[in-house]
Write a protein that binds this DNA or RNA. Sequence first.
DNA 1: TGGTCCATGTAAAACGTTACATGATTCC
DNA 2: GGAATCATGTAACGTTTTACATGGACCA
Lengths: 178, 178
Amino acid sequence: MALAQAILVSLLEQPQTGYDLARGFDTAIGFFWQASHQQIYGELKKLETQGAVSSKAVPQSGRPNKNVYALTETGALALEAWMAEPASRPQIAKDDLLIRTFALGRVRAPTMATQIQERRTRHQERLALYQQIETKRYTFDDGTVPDHLVGKYLCLRGGLKHEAMWIEWCDEALALIG
Amino acid sequence: MALAQAILVSLLEQPQTGYDLARGFDTAIGFFWQASHQQIYGELKKLETQGAVSSKAVPQSGRPNKNVYALTETGALALEAWMAEPASRPQIAKDDLLIRTFALGRVRAPTMATQIQERRTRHQERLALYQQIETKRYTFDDGTVPDHLVGKYLCLRGGLKHEAMWIEWCDEALALIG
DNA sequence: TGGTCCATGTAAAACGTTACATGATTCC
DNA sequence: GGAATCATGTAACGTTTTACATGGACCA
């Protein structure tokens, strides 16, 4: 749906290959948007035929050529227009741990405490990662975040809050089903 | 993926039609799992051929017949087995408001404050709804939730925390970009 | 008379995942 | 010698959304 825009936004920072994007989707924007390399290669081609991105082949020795994609003027304008479009309503991620949780008290489920404990560990790891990033990249002497980083910073803050909240939830659940 | 299980868990409480399920997916389990009626009708048929649910036609006057589905023994056992399977890793919901946010500071976006404000209102509404449900259905004199409601209650708690967290995020974002 | 609710369904399109494929390079 | 990295791609499959379809009941 908004994969095209996720790519355009990623290209704002610098031109990238499909491969770069696929990897970046594992880090920066990937904290809240996932896409496989197959999807990205396909979408890039579509965006190129629309004129939103341009590609430049970079020959390499002993490797397939790189296709480095850059945002075009057209793409930048399209992105700006899209920014003003109303965002879709928030969706809760489909989470099968919650389905299992829903059944608690009605189905025998001796492993649920372990499962929630495991989930807690995951969130804890993520939280630690985000905290590290916050300290490293978003801590400034005067205590304010420079304008051009505000967007990325807010996304990180969302991630931090998200993980912290789920840790709290796990603790609450463990206390209740203990 | 886990749509089948979401249906089975919904049927734990009582036999229901596909139509009922599709509407329930807008309320109880639907707070964290979405599915259209088309998907549900299809999945119910699949589940019936597998023997996990059984259907009973209920004739009606002036309406199409109801197909009321109930969980079978087989289905209950399958569900119990599934409960012990490891849950998939947590995913963050794809949210195009966050993509827009990511671009803040790099693209002109004069409507973003309004958009976040609107999103805040949505979360506020949801939070109010969940709080109402908590008060109405999960408040007991002795302060404890009865066993058979623990699962549903924990899901509601997740919803509450989720909405509260996003309201906080919206406030943080508005303060930073205001 | 026009809209929403009940109750089911088909069909096509869009989106996403999984598996497979290539082939040199670099690291352990 | 084996695994991971770089870099692209095709094909099959599964899931989800959107659109279309029916038709009486009930309400304003």
